[in-house]
């Protein structure tokens, strides 16, 4: 199925990752090993869906891991508006193995806002919420 019009694949340095097999639905851990979220979807750069692709367009690049409401649309169909997407930029990703490891701390990320909200509004207000069980 190779067409002569396509730009040939750039020489691959490093590992080849399969989006479906190695990225989607993988657990995301931050640099301290704390779970942040699961990879609910991926965002690619490049032309929009259904647009004519001119000859010589560079291959799309993975921009960000997505999470949040996009899981619902991935399961039930449809697509949330771009403003509702919660992104983890690909440059923050440090390693992809059985889990996706980030090179940054999870605390301040957009992906953690629900966790922060539940923590500050509910759990931290119950006595003993900050108690270390160990």
């Amino acid at each position: 199925m190779t067409s002569p019009d396509l730009v040939p694949l750039p020489p691959v340095a490093g590992r080849i990752l399969d989006a479906q097999l190695h990225l989607l639905d993988r657990q995301v851990l931050d640099t301290d090993g704390v779970p942040v979220t699961t990879v609910d979807d991926l965002e690619l750069s490049g032309p929009a869906l259904g647009e004519e692709i001119p000859v010589g367009t560079p291959a799309p690049v993975l921009d960000a891991l997505l999470t949040g409401p996009v899981l619902g649309t991935r399961i039930f169909g449809g697509r949330p508006p771009s403003s509702r997407l919660i992104r983890i930029p690909w440059k923050d990703v440090a390693d992809v193995g059985v889990v996706v490891r980030l090179g940054v701390r999870g605390g301040p990320l957009d992906a953690g806002w629900v966790e922060r909200w539940v923590r500050d509004k509910i759990i931290a207000r119950i006595p003993g919420g900050r108690h270390d069980p160990r």
Binding site: V34, V36, V114, A124, I126, R130
Partner: peptide, 16 residues
Amino acid sequence: FGWSWGKFRRPVQAAR
């Protein structure tokens, strides 16, 4: 859903 979990964490670190 990939939340932080576990009894080895403080409850505030596994709020959901």
